[in-house]
Amino acid sequence: MGKIELVGVEKTFGHVGVIKGVDLQVEDGEFVVFVGPSGCGKSTLLRLIAGLEDTTGGRILIDGVDVSDTPPAKRGLSMVFQSYALYPHMSVRSNIGFGLRMAGVPKEERNRKVEAAAAVLNLTAYLDRRPGQLSGGQRQRVAIGRAIVREPKAFLFDEPLSNLDAALRVNMRLEIARLQNSLGTTAIYVTHDQIEAMTLADKIVVLNAGKIEQVGSPLELYDHPANLFVAGFIGSPKMNLVSGAAARKHGAATIGVRPEHVSTSPTIGEWEGVVSVAEHVGSDTFLYVTVPDIGDITVRAVGELALKPGAKVFLTPDISRIHRFDRDGNAVRN
């Protein structure tokens, strides 16, 4: 079991509030991703759950038990650190088995479990090496091995992929997803990369300035952002946000339209603009169009589009996919 509940959790460092009252429910077996810009408090929130920091206020419950004052070791969670935090003076075997050793698991059982974990992670051949002799991806796997071998109530991941190169990152992302799926263990995953968040999460928690902006499944967040912040943060390229007269026409202070929901035409459309940059990435073409009185609009068109910088183009937002926001930045539901 691994149900985690946060009730009014607060954290201040000195006089600076880093986490300002967070309520959250993480169901057993769920994969939850905390995402937000740097400094939003997502890592601090994870460390509060881990017990590496004390809460200033509120309660943290694991399986219904208040653990706010329980030391990290007794919370039954395991964590994968951004830097991997492997013990440099121990072999891979000892690294993975350290938690079991601390728990007083007999040596034979320990070995059996470590080897099982190593087999899952393709680390069997490296069990007697030191972390210093491994590649980045292998180190990452050791860190994950260390986390799974203890059969924790939940995994905590603190930006685990940010030290890997792009290709490896995609592989490891898949591997983490597969692993969590097969183990069925609750996972909380912190990242600033919204692609990681979208691909991994059952549930995304968008944090900003120490508060939760929105909680929901990736598609909920994508299709129905609760406010301007989430709208701007989720999705790549970013949602086009337009305010002023063009927005008022649609009955909102600001409207948002995703790049793929803008159609182009050489002759007719709602907005007239000039292409400033055209990026051709094969499957798609991204156009950056400067529209007078409105600003820069990003357009995503499927396939190749023969438009050169400087070309005149007409844009039309898909009326059914427009997001409306009021003056406070909150979404207006129809």
Binding site: S78, A103, R146, R150
Partner: peptide
């Protein structure tokens, strides 16, 4: 010495 490593030990249940 990276603080992370000591925290990892703490997570691993070391006093």
């Amino acid at each position: 010495i990276p603080k992370d490593i000591l925290e990892a030990a703490r997570m691993d249940g070391a006093t």
